[in-house]
Design a binder for these strands. Sequence first.
RNA 1: CGGGGCAUAGCGCAGUCCGGUUAGCGCAUCUGCUUUGGGAGCAGAGGGUCGCAGGUUCGAAUCCUGCUGCCCCGACCA
Length: 491
Amino acid sequence: MSKGITSRVENYSQWYNELVVRAGLAENSGVRGSMVIKPYGYAIWEKMRDQLDKMFKETGHENAYFPLFIPKSYFSKEASHVDGFAKECAVVTHYRLKTDANNQIVVDEDAKLEEELIVRPTSETIIWSTYKNWIQSYRDLPILINQWANVVRWEMRTRLFLRTSEFLWQEGHTAHSTAQEAMAETRQMLDIYAEFAENWLALPVIKGAKSASERFAGALETLSIEAMMQDGKALQSGTSHFLGQNFAKAFDVKFLTKEGKQEYVWASSWGVSTRLMGALIMAHSDDKGLVLPPKLAPIHVVIVPIYKNTGELEKISAAVKIMMTELKAKGITVKFDDNDNNRPGFKFAEYELKGVPVRLAMGMRDLEAGNVELVRRDTLEKQVVKQVGIAEYIEKLLIEIQQNIYSKAHKHREANTHKVDTYAEFKQIIESENGGFVLAHWDGTPETEEKIKEETKATIRCIPFDSPEEDGVCMYSGKPSKQRVLFAKAY
RNA sequence: CGGGGCAUAGCGCAGUCCGGUUAGCGCAUCUGCUUUGGGAGCAGAGGGUCGCAGGUUCGAAUCCUGCUGCCCCGACCA
């Protein structure tokens, strides 16, 4: 195994692939397009999940679980929904295997299902077929449910975390008595995603609405948060959909209003997936490995002893134990790596690869002086600090690291976001090495959007909420436009 | 689904063109000694149905046929 990883400049894509594997986050499995999430990677996902779950519950949502299999007939009830997902569905057709004449295990053709089952690519249909039974009156509304689940989308080309055939996610599905309430829910959940991305992933995001062609299959409106990766490409990091009455109509879900009228129910759905892991990795990490924001790091502090014999190790360990107790008391996760098989230099490189935010090293020199050597992962700055008061120091430092990682990502995005008024300029920026975000006028037609995509591979990531109204002309067609939209190449 | 590449020890690879000692190297593993402030050194040891199935041949990792899997590049997508 080589020592380092491919640098970002050398080959960004390869850097990412190697980093995911070498840092022990995930690996490819024997199943095409499906990954194994390893303990260290899963620990990060658990932290994300726990925090999001808390935020969902704080806003009145409850968890539930719906089936993995969806009868084909349910799935086909909402026309645009089918159109959107049909090409990437795994289908269960049989329920039994048998041993054939050659002693091979084969599918038993006699055990063909009367109705095929779709492995869920998303759960709107199974959930709305259920909601039909739960909703009769306005008193039954709203329903605010989330589920943590796996889904399958048969992808042609996959990449660890960014696009795999099976992935983990959460999907919220809510039912409301008015359009306004459903839309407010859609917006509220997008805000929660944005807050999570910025405060936990340390990732600045742009909130906005999708253009019609980028909308979720079956939605009237799709909102998303878009983040910039270090190579200037956009990564859609969360989506929230206003589904109108489409699914209520498809599954005949009506409720009795206060006024005694029968009306169709209004819906929203929203989700984030293990793709957030990809965002986290690509946004902050460097050529030495992962850089994790402290709020999501499975280990905050690693302590490496430097010693010549067991006597020294014992003395160092005693001092380390005291620091560990103090750190743990403040809720800081700390690992003391006294494994004698690896030498300090190896450990330094290893924990940098794994993105541990703070590393302490202590040898006899430090011990005698009452010091400890401290290195922060985000800047790789080395300093010598007093053992006394170390917990308070690190507590503050972790907050500073979290902020620094965010502001670094924010600066990078600002430096690579451009306002552009001509198509020539647009192409020049989009095709340049660092790519980036471009804010430009667009005439609002799918035709123009499609042409731009064909010619440059850039797409409209969103129509940002905070983009001011401003008279202009479409950079492509010259037709009038009232607002700039966000273009970028995307993952 | 189209184009390309790969499959040999736990991992990374050489050997394949041009068939012929006992299939080799690095890392990892095990043992011992010396080491330990940025990926340790020396000595020794263990570890292989050469992806699978056929075929050609006195003889196949190597040649032929078929199959399978994975990776990369495109079209599709969160």
